[in-house]
């Protein structure tokens, strides 16, 4: 059963990654929405704001950091919490993520423990 405050929008252009994240999150009471790029994700947020966003960096059409900037610009600085989940792992990317209002940063490859641990760190679990 989904608990209140537990919807997550998973934004990734890889269907496999979305599926893995969905399986883990649904196993912990989250209702999961999916989007394959930033633009689709933004439209989803406008329709119904999720309680959290798991966000890839490199995607066609609109990438993760552009999405984050647009989201924060349109809806304010810190809600919902956004966690990057990307193969980018240079400090400069993490710094940019922090600068633009991301709450956490997961470096792929990730597993269930890392994903849930990061959700716990930002107070979502």
């Amino acid at each position: 059963m989904t608990q209140p405050g537990r919807t997550c929008l998973v934004v990734d252009d890889s269907r496999v990654v979305r599926k893995v994240a969905r399986r883990i999150l649904e196993g912990h009471g989250f209702a999961v929405e999916e989007a394959e790029d930033g633009q689709v994700a933004l439209a989803t947020c406008r329709r119904q704001m999720p309680d959290s966003v798991l966000l890839d960096w490199n995607m066609p059409v609109m990438n993760g950091i552009e999405f984050l900037k647009a989201l924060r610009h349109e809806f304010g600085p810190d809600r919902p919490p956004v966690m990057f989940c990307t193969t980018e792992n240079d400090i400069s990317f993490i710094e940019q993520a922090i600068e633009h209002g991301a709450q956490e940063f997961i470096m792929k490859p990730f597993d269930e423990e890392i994903l849930l641990g990061k959700f716990a760190l930002v107070g979502l679990l």
Partner: peptide, 20 residues
């Protein structure tokens, strides 16, 4: 390892106190 720094460590501390 990348795995170890993702267990329990907030990203702010990773950026501030670690080097790749």
């Amino acid at each position: 390892t990348q795995f170890e720094v993702q267990r329990g460590l907030p990203m702010q501390y990773l950026v501030k106190y670690f080097k790749k």
